[in-house]
Design a protein around this nucleic acid. Structure first.
Ligand SMILES: [Zn+2]
Ligand SMILES: [Zn+2]
Ligand SMILES: [Zn+2]
Ligand SMILES: [Zn+2]
Lengths: 148, 148
DNA sequence: TATTAAATGAGAATGATTTTCAATTAGCTC
DNA sequence: GAGCTAATTGAAAATCATTCTCATTTAATA
């Protein structure tokens, strides 16, 4: 299965999968497509709907399996909303963070890392070794601010 | 219901609840107790267990209701783990962030805010208005590093 | 085109969270 | 301290989210 036209995001995913000896299945590429063509983060259900629209009946378990795997591979980033909901956004492995609109769940990247230059001394003094971090900004996007 | 001995955390919760016209029930104070006496973040189930140990049979729904309410009141902070799990940590409304040990789920506060001095210009240029943020550091605590 | 390990689908199973409503209780007032 | 009342709880059902199982299908390679 190799489409004539393939966007950079799909090629990227295909490449990462191949490197790991994983298969570039129709379903996996559809998940990439659905995610990267959305300017908002999507819930598992929304991704499932999007994939079904492209491919017809598709198992929900496949979506779960794909998202978990993509997260490990850095192909998607999981976001957390104040209301407890979760969303997924496409990612190309780069170190980026997101700001999310709490109204429409739109996602906006920001490549600068606010934590990068942070001095961990005070926390490492407590014997803690920092390995990773999660940063997410909340707010309102321009459209939602207007609408309000 | 007013205990003879009450720690500052419990008084704090009691005060916040009173200010909002909410009742300081035995169950709610037990949730506070269980959380603030734990040096690790706790899952809903663990909190439920802790409360049952203090009070005997207690409805799980009450724990959920309490945690949701406490989150709104700033009495607890919800944490997110890489494996998808969630944990809750006691909080006194202050602006703190947490580093969490991915092995034992221990929580360590750090009062410095890495995002505070961050220049939002690049993101606000996109029409986005930043209102809040979530920062969490991951790593290994001293004990778990030794054990490993 | 044949081979084969990897992946999918369907539904059952499990687990997490929310809802419902009758019974209980905290926080007043007297 | 007893009585009042709205807020809260408990228990179980209902709903929603996630994982598992295993027979079938498919991508990748030769
Ligand atoms: Zn928006
Ligand atoms: Zn960063
Ligand atoms: Zn630890
Ligand atoms: Zn902060």
């Amino acid at each position: 299965m190799m489409k004539d036209f393939e966007c950079t995001q799909e090629s990227y995913a295909r490449e990462v999968l191949r490197e790991k000896g994983l298969k570039s299945t129709t379903q996996r590429l559809a998940v990439v497509h659905v995610l990267h063509t959305s300017r908002k983060s999507l819930s598992v259900g929304e991704i499932h709907d999007g994939v079904k629209e492209m491919l017809g009946a598709t198992g929900l378990a496949t979506i779960y399996r794909t998202l978990e795997m993509f997260e490990d591979l850095g192909i998607v980033k999981r976001l957390h909303f104040p209301d407890g909901g979760r969303g997924y956004a496409f990612s190309q492995g780069e170190h980026v963070h997101h700001m999310v609109c709490v109204d429409c769940r739109g996602v906006f990247d920001f490549p600068e890392c606010p934590v990068e230059s942070f001095d961990y001394a005070s926390v490492e003094k407590q014997g803690f070794r920092v390995k990773d971090h999660f940063v997410q900004l909340f707010g309102q996007c321009g459209k939602c601010a207007e609408a309000a």
